[in-house]
Design a protein around this nucleic acid. Sequence first.
DNA 1: AAAAAATACCTTGACAGCCGAGGTATATCG
DNA 2: CGATATACCTCGGCTGTCAAGGTATTTTTT
Lengths: 108, 108
Amino acid sequence: MSLTSDIIRGHTETIILAQLLDGDSYGYNISKAIKSKSEGAYEPKEATLYTAFRRLEQNGLIRSYWGDEDTGARRRYYSVTEEGRRLFDENKNEWLRVRSIIDKLIEK
Amino acid sequence: MSLTSDIIRGHTETIILAQLLDGDSYGYNISKAIKSKSEGAYEPKEATLYTAFRRLEQNGLIRSYWGDEDTGARRRYYSVTEEGRRLFDENKNEWLRVRSIIDKLIEK
DNA sequence: AAAAAATACCTTGACAGCCGAGGTATATCG
DNA sequence: CGATATACCTCGGCTGTCAAGGTATTTTTT
């Protein structure tokens, strides 16, 4: 596993929640949005993305529904729940906290 | 596993290397130094620490030797190799890169 | 002096997130 | 018609973290 994998690890859910706070979206689109926002630097692997969706939904942080496209492949849309919003806020604060800790520990 | 565990994951080696760049040290002391530098916010679990030492040594990033205390419990000291210094620099740059990516992805 | 806490080391097995590899299906473009 | 893009999904392996357990010595507290 590459270094980046382990460093990004644990942020996947927060990153997904952040995207969904901009409005409901579906897997493929979320993936591309993340790639775009990170200027190509990061695009979650499909397996990672879909297992994260499962986890999030099972824990009541997002909800899903099928889109009603009459053309193209079917899309499963996701929306953030109230609980999901709360978790995002928590996780964001946690990130800011941990970020400063790591900064302290590896500054040199 | 707590959120923090997954977020700190992948930084353990870099943090250890950073401590050793201040001078040779041993497990227990490194652990306390990390706790102190992070103002009590983080102290690696022993199992995590010692498995990290194994990994680092097996990969030639640190070297170890027994201290010659004639009192107190025996101590295994570690020192950073040239390769270890290089890895630390790489990892630090990687951290700065990933940090800004995550910031972009979860800012709101 | 006995008990407790601190110092100092170590191993084993479980757990959980990430991802490579594989799969299905439709639409578009050359 | 074949390739690429869109869009979904699962399974199994890998790896870092940690709870729980262990040994041994020294210092502090009762």
